[in-house]
Design a protein around this nucleic acid. Structure first.
Lengths: 117, 117
DNA sequence: GACTCATATATCGAACGACGATACATTGTT
DNA sequence: AACAATGTATCGTCGTTCGATATATGAGTC
């Protein structure tokens, strides 16, 4: 009876996910999309229309760089982290942890206080 | 050498924080703002211009209800959770946990893979 | 009396990311 | 021949967040 959760991405969290995927090695859009979706289960249904503009933004920021690959009729655009991208990932990860801790600090006592209804 | 983090709120996370604060009992805008800011430390600087529209949205959704209080020249608008609000808080909390788990699943191996630079 | 800070709620426009639809081209499958 | 999967991309819409601004009272101080 698999409960299904589905929600909008939280603004800014996708950056972290994409950078995380790329930390594992160079990759291209379609695969990144699948990797994030797998990790997200029912939760995250990442659309191409969300991913590609983000990749372009990240590239414009200089945290990833890209390169076209043409092989047997297939064209793929491979992205990889730059040194700035690795720094960005570390920073964002730290920020995420702090942010999550803030939420937790409010959430845990709240759920305890909440009547059973 | 207090590192200071500061970032935009993540879309949707403020709902959770505000509902959490209200789980502790009825409260009014200005106090809610202070409670969230305390929990957020350097991280979250919640602006009144963000909070009040949210409170109105939550009210329109029927998850909180409000009541004016006039006492010695002060006017305050007290908000409290409705039963639907308690359900909402539980749902959002569960979703948050799942969401955080998804991020974690990508993030932890990524940081391990990341070279020291 | 004037000034400033904290309290208290509210609205407005700008900015921007996420969404859904759509487009298009190739490869593999039925 | 038709269809699903692979692969990248753009466009308009929507809605939350942000920062500035407005307003009014109470308390403390110069």
């Amino acid at each position: 009876m698999a409960e299904t959760f589905e929600r909008e991405l939280m603004r800014g969290s996708l950056d972290l996910m994409v950078l995380s995927v790329l930390a594992d090695g160079a990759n291209y859009g379609y695969q990144i999309q699948k990797r994030v979706r797998e990790a997200g289960g029912d939760m995250i249904k990442l659309q191409a229309g969300t991913l590609y503009p983000l990749l372009h933004r990240l590239q414009a920021d200089g945290v990833i760089k890209c390169q076209w690959e043409f092989a047997n009729g297939r064209k793929r655009k491979w992205y990889e982290l730059t040194p700035a991208g690795r720094r960005r990932l570390r920073d964002q990860a730290t920020q995420w942890d702090h942010y999550a801790a803030c939420i937790r600090q409010l959430l845990t006592p709240a759920l305890t206080a909440l009547p059973a209804d």
